[in-house]
């Protein structure tokens, strides 16, 4: 968790610190909400799983009975009626409509089956023999299809919920393990950076102060020197006036005299 890698690319300013702080707050609220949503969905999911289990068991039983009633038809009619039934069926008797159900913001399609009454296309199949078996078989299969429809809507809900739960959990985890730490890191970084700046500033100020002090010291020294100088000159003037002209044998060189 080196601060440099796991943080956002922001300039460490007080403004971005403010932004980051509100972002962290937002992330935490969002995390709570999403967590709650995920829990609600998971609850629903568990319920659906349970119902799928029941529906599948029921389907097993119903399909078995249905297959057996078909065997009864074969026994009673003594032949294949499949083609005849296929050809005489004109309009669907068993229909399915869909509606939507809202579970914490997720739309789950629910299939609902209904039968249109008075629509019995192959009512006369097996008129000579086995008609009752055919009708009974049809009823059993209608029940089987009903179970299938129920199972289908559960399965669809299952798939959709599964997907949604995955997404939500991913978001929750992303917020919990990536966004919040990163924002926190950024805040930490900005804070440390700001402290650093503060310290630098302080140091700089100190330096400036030092320099200024030094400068004043030098100026003072110069002033003093000047003053001293001036005083000295005043003294020399007095000496000249008392001591008379320059030193002849002194430093002044006489021009060479050439004869």
């Amino acid at each position: 968790m080196s601060g440099a890698t796991n943080r956002e690319a922001v300039f460490p300013t007080r403004q971005s610190l403010g932004i980051m702080k509100s972002k962290l707050k937002g992330a935490q609220t969002g995390h709570d909400l999403l967590k709650r949503k995920s829990e609600a969905l998971t609850k629903r999911f568990r319920e659906i799983t349970r119902r799928i289990d029941e529906a599948k068991r029921k389907m097993g039983r119903v399909m078995q009975i249905a297959a057996f009633s078909l065997a009864e038809v074969t026994y009673a009619v003594g032949g294949d009626i499949g083609y005849q039934v296929q050809e005489s069926a004109k309009s669907a008797r068993f229909r399915v409509r869909t509606k939507q159900e809202n579970v914490s913001g997720v739309f789950l399609p629910a299939f609902e089956s209904y039968t249109t009454e008075g629509n019995n296309d192959f009512g006369l199949t097996g008129l000579g023999k086995g008609g009752q078996q055919v009708q009974r078989c049809r009823e059993t299969y209608a029940r089987a299809v009903e179970t299938l429809v129920e199972l289908a809507s559960l399965q669809t809900a299952f798939v959709i919920l599964d997907e949604v739960i995955k997404v939500v959990n991913r978001r929750v985890n992303a917020i919990e393990h990536v966004i919040i730490p990163r924002t926190e890191n950024t805040i930490k970084y900005i804070n440390s950076e700001l402290d650093e700046l503060d310290r630098e500033e302080f140091f700089r100020l100190k330096k400036v102060q030092n320099k200024k002090q030094r400068d004043t010291a030098i100026q003072d020294a110069e002033m003093r020197a000047k003053r001293e100088d001036a005083e000295k000159r005043d003294k020399d003037k007095e000496n000249e006036e008392t001591g008379g002209g320059g030193d002849i044998l002194g430093d002044d060189e006489d021009a060479d005299v050439i004869f």
Partner: peptide, 17 residues
């Protein structure tokens, strides 16, 4: 009801067919 082996109820009585 009429019919063969009244679907699944396992009645031992014979049906008309």
């Amino acid at each position: 009801g009429p019919g063969n082996m009244s679907g699944g109820s396992g009645s031992d009585g014979k049906s008309l067919e």
